[in-house]
């Protein structure tokens, strides 16, 4: 169990130390005198957990541990998961004259957000017009 906990703690430290800029900038590609370097943003994470609990007898009492046999079985469990996400951000274009950064726009995401915004505004406009043209209540 101690080894497993140590492994968890080691992976935590490793994740922190391995964060490298080189993962964000791709290999330069030269085509017709222009060199293109793809640039992305990335995010990754993980979560893990492990635990042990003493073996209980049928009455719910904790069983006595035999000092001479430390290998007595215990209830153990562990689990974990992780994920990674990468998204293209821009392209660095290097020519003989200059270095330029061309942003990459996720048009699908922007279009979806724009459609949702349009629906949101239409809803609010309808609500505002209803309030303006509805007859006022008198006390």
């Amino acid at each position: 169990m101690e080894a497993m906990i140590q492994k968890l703690l080691d992976s935590f430290t490793a994740l922190r130390e391995r964060a490298s800029v080189n993962a964000l900038f791709g290999e330069p590609v030269t085509v017709e005198g222009r060199t293109i370097i793809p640039v992305a943003k990335i995010a990754y994470g993980f979560g893990m957990g492990a635990g042990t609990a003493p073996v209980l007898s049928s009455t719910g009492e904790q069983e006595e541990t035999d000092e001479e046999s430390p290998s007595q079985p215990a209830n153990e469990g562990s689990g974990g998961g992780g994920g990674m996400m990468g998204q293209p951000l821009a392209v660095v274009e290097v020519t003989e004259e200059a270095v330029r950064v061309q942003p990459i726009i996720d048009e699908q995401k922007v279009a979806l957000a724009g459609t949702l915004l349009a629906a949101w505004i239409v809803g609010w406009l309808a609500y505002a017009l209803m309030r303006i043209f509805s007859p006022r209540r008198t006390a």
């Binding site: 640039v39 979560g47 635990g51 042990t52």
Partner: peptide
């Protein structure tokens, strides 16, 4: 006394901010 428990979670975000020519 009733057991051992370990939890680890970590999230890292890397975002390019500039390129120095």
């Amino acid at each position: 006394g009733r057991g051992t428990m370990a939890q680890v979670w970590a999230v890292a975000r890397l975002r390019p901010i500039a390129i120095v020519e």
